[in-house]
Write a protein that binds this DNA or RNA. Structure first.
Lengths: 239, 239
DNA sequence: CGACTTCTTGAGGAACGTCAACCGCAGTGG
DNA sequence: CCACTGCGGTTGACGTTCCTCAAGAAGTCG
């Protein structure tokens, strides 16, 4: 169990250079950053802040079941708004760092005031919330019925949308997998071993390439898209 | 495949008598209902409206995979705000009626204006969105790692929170299951047959009672809570 | 009564979880 | 320099689980 440890930095708080935050006016930025602080976290450390923005790294909302099973309900990357303030006294889960990360902790009351005062901040928040809602619905669909290979294809496309994760080196579509296998497993509801097997299966079918390390080359994007959209159901005993 | 069919009613639009909508001021209610309409739907009919409030019945966001598998990502009951407006040109899924339902379709531009004008409407919307976010995270946790029996216990507690679904007849905690078995299955990511078996298992263990029809009596709430929280993991081959 | 839908029950098999072992790598300390 | 340790990832064997399919039961509506 990772202990809670927050290393405060005296650095001036700043917003990540990522939409929609880099479009805010100077006055809005100034107001929003009042009482804010940049925090740094090592991998696997819990973060007991309920409101803020991811500056670098990867965070997740983790929920632990009674017997120790862990589920990552939401992944956050650079620029994502994190809002875990309680609803009806119910905890939404705990925020953990999946990699070494920096996080901009916002002051809740300042934040509420800024939303009311600046329309650009309000719309930035709404944009983020609706985007995350859509992603969470996607994710629920993945979890409900997709096979491991389909879920993995789906999550690869999710990683491709992460800022800085995708690149187009030498004409190939390369993705840097930003988290550990075990984290992917906890995210898509399977075990790390099954993630490993699913990756190997995709590679054997020449749908992806594994040049080195944590890099994945999408060799056949149309097929992968079909897969991610539910193209490989459980095998029927009939056929 | 259910055809799209909407039966318009000339009835005056009205808000459901349910929090937070019944706390709005008269002026707010009047503004919000401008250009709104009450629609009625039969079971399994699609609803091509992106914004509105459930008046009676049960709706769901359905996503269909390429091969016909269906997942219900979100259930909506009386009083729930439905906001399926697109994000980044991505469809969130389609809205379907799980039972005969009535739905208050809101005008999107009127709605935006009302939120900006009336703070009680804005806070009602925010309350609904955050509540649904929390529920969706719960649901993702269910889908990720819970066994069918655990997921079923979890969804029974979800139904208990539905207005009108729970009652306290003769001292027992009785729930009216508001949707079909197949819908429950599509919601918690298992098959209808497995739902049936899970219900039977719970009854055999005296955790629930099945007096008649679609009624379920929670006979042992503490045990059920434990179960819903992950109290019955997959069996280890070790023990 | 049939025709239909929904739910239930049973048999059988594919699939994924469980466990154990191993590999590669990085850090550590002698 | 090398042994030791720990972590993350991979591979293999095996068994439970839940999906698939089929058939029947129960309720609904014409």
């Amino acid at each position: 169990m990772p202990e809670v440890q927050q290393q405060d930095r005296q650095a001036q708080p700043y917003l990540p250079d990522h939409a929609p935050w880099n479009t805010l006016s100077t006055a809005s930025t100034h107001d929003l950053l009042t009482n804010a602080a940049i925090l740094s976290f090592d991998q696997d450390h819990c973060i007991d802040v309920d409101l803020g923005i991811v500056v670098t790294g990867a965070l997740a909302v983790e929920r632990e079941l009674a017997d120790g099973r862990r589920a990552l309900c939401t992944l956050f990357h650079e620029g994502n708004l994190v809002d875990l303030r309680r609803v009806d006294r119910v905890r939404q889960g705990s925020l953990v760092a999946l990699t070494t990360s920096r996080f901009l902790a916002l002051d809740e009351t300042v934040c509420e005031a800024s939303i009311g005062k600046h329309t650009d901040i309000a719309s930035a928040f709404i944009t983020q919330l609706r985007e995350q809602f859509a992603r969470l619905r996607d994710h629920a669909t993945d979890l409900a019925f997709k096979t491991p290979v389909e879920s993995l294809a789906s999550v690869l496309f999710e990683f491709r949308r992460w800022p800085g994760a995708a690149s187009d080196e030498q004409g190939a579509d390369t993705i840097q997998i930003p988290v550990r296998r075990g984290d992917i497993a906890n995210y898509i509801g399977i075990k790390a071993e099954t993630v490993s097997r699913a990756i190997r299966k995709l590679e054997q079918e020449r749908l992806i390439g594994l040049p080195y390390g944590d890099r994945v080359v999408l060799a056949d994007i149309p097929s992968m898209r079909r897969l991610a959209n539910g193209g490989r159901p459980r095998q029927s005993t009939r056929r």
